[in-house]
Design a protein around this nucleic acid. Structure first.
Lengths: 220, 220
DNA sequence: ACCCCATATTCTGTATACAATTCCGCATCC
DNA sequence: GGATGCGGAATTGTATACAGAATATGGGGT
């Protein structure tokens, strides 16, 4: 039941996923531990986990740093998403039961309105992730689900930015993907998923690229 | 900086990857830390990292456990390998320079004999991993390379077992894959890689399933 | 024999202390 | 002016102590 490390872990994870640290910022352990109301020992344990998950960096003797999101990293993580999620949906087409598919359809109809009624973007991103993770779950491969989750953590912030301009068409894209799954059309499902992710990749990369060029405008 | 954590980390990683812990065994921190000549603090930091990487399990209040390799887990990890490595070789076909390809060919010719001259299996597995990671590297996606590496860590022991009966045909399979890459034939490269990994998946799973209890006898 | 509960023991979870290292400002030198 | 070296302060790395939870132990009741 003891949980100080888990609490700290969740808090720091949130902070990292929501980019409350400045990119490449060095994280002061004493300060952060005070802020979180724990000592350095559990904090360091949590940060070690997060480093292994790719949310932080670590340099021996210098400490922990925020892992900056560069345009290259975004491209790379979206490529990984594409690989993992196309594999997942292929497996899902093979392995999902009709009941599973019915549940997924229910989820889509239940949440359809949310994409148009001014629900906060943060919540939309959550629904979006949930849909993708439900499909991943139908692959029957929990390790795969876990890897996809970890990848999401690392790009959640940029997805949040990108989603603000995409909310309207996201649900349609999901429905399109779902229908291929429902028809047990493996090739279509994979291809639609790939296209979906590639589209978001392009947008997210553009956004991060813009943010970067804004940061580095030379001053005269 | 001497970094006891990194030393301990590497040692425990080796122990986990080589299955020197019994499956699902609870790991006694004090004992292991004495054995490794460090205190519990760096040991726990290392084990937290390894837990995030999937080599160990953690239960709050109960400590760290060896993550057992079940047949299901092997299937799942090979599916992930398949997804990641087919994506990697597709990217490699697009992005590798002619020089990169020449280096890869050199590697294959340099190491060809090793697969037939009684080189220890452990070394063959290393060469096998190196070939696959070179291709992954040509994808230009270091995050992808890293995920593939982590997946290898988790199945290295079973690959070692499986490889003992496969050494002769492995090099031929690699050459076959390489030639598709050399010809810039994306579809053939992907399909050959997929078949290669699927074959190993089937074998590895069979081995783990058959000899589940015998798998964990200490090796020499 | 078996189960249950109280107690003892072991082990984990966290705080803290201190050593080792890096960082930073400042003076010095070229 | 820029590079270099040298304290001193700040920060990380690791050991250790101790509280509390989990587990093992043992005895008494059924």
């Amino acid at each position: 039941m003891s949980t100080s490390v888990d609490l700290v872990y969740e808090q720091v994870r949130q902070m990292a996923a929501n980019f409350e640290f400045k990119p490449a910022e060095r994280i002061n352990e004493s300060e952060l531990s005070k802020q979180l109301g724990a000592s350095r020992t559990p904090l360091r344990e949590a940060m070690n986990r997060l480093t292994a998950e790719g949310l932080l960096m670590f340099e021996p003797g210098r400490g922990f740093f925020c892992q900056p999101l560069t345009p290259e990293l975004v491209v790379h993580l979206y490529e990984i998403r594409e690989a993992l999620e196309t594999a997942a949906i292929r497996a899902a087409v093979e392995r999902a039961s009709d009941d599973d598919i019915a549940i997924l359809r229910q989820f889509l109809t239940d949440t359809a309105d949310r994409y148009a009624d001014g629900t906060p973007t943060k919540e939309i991103v959550r629904l979006d992730e949930e849909f993708h993770l439900m499909i991943a779950g139908l692959s029957g491969n929990p390790e795969l689900v876990n890897m996809i989750k970890l990848t999401y953590e690392r790009i959640r912030y940029v997805r949040w930015i990108a989603m603000r301009e995409r909310i309207d068409i996201t649900h349609a894209a999901h429905l399109h993907i779902f229908e291929a799954l429902e028809n047990r059309d493996s090739q279509a499902a994979e291809e639609r998923m790939r296209t979906h992710i590639k589209t978001h990749n392009a947008e997210a990369t553009e956004i991060v690229g813009k943010a970067y060029s804004n940061l580095y405008v030379p001053q005269h």
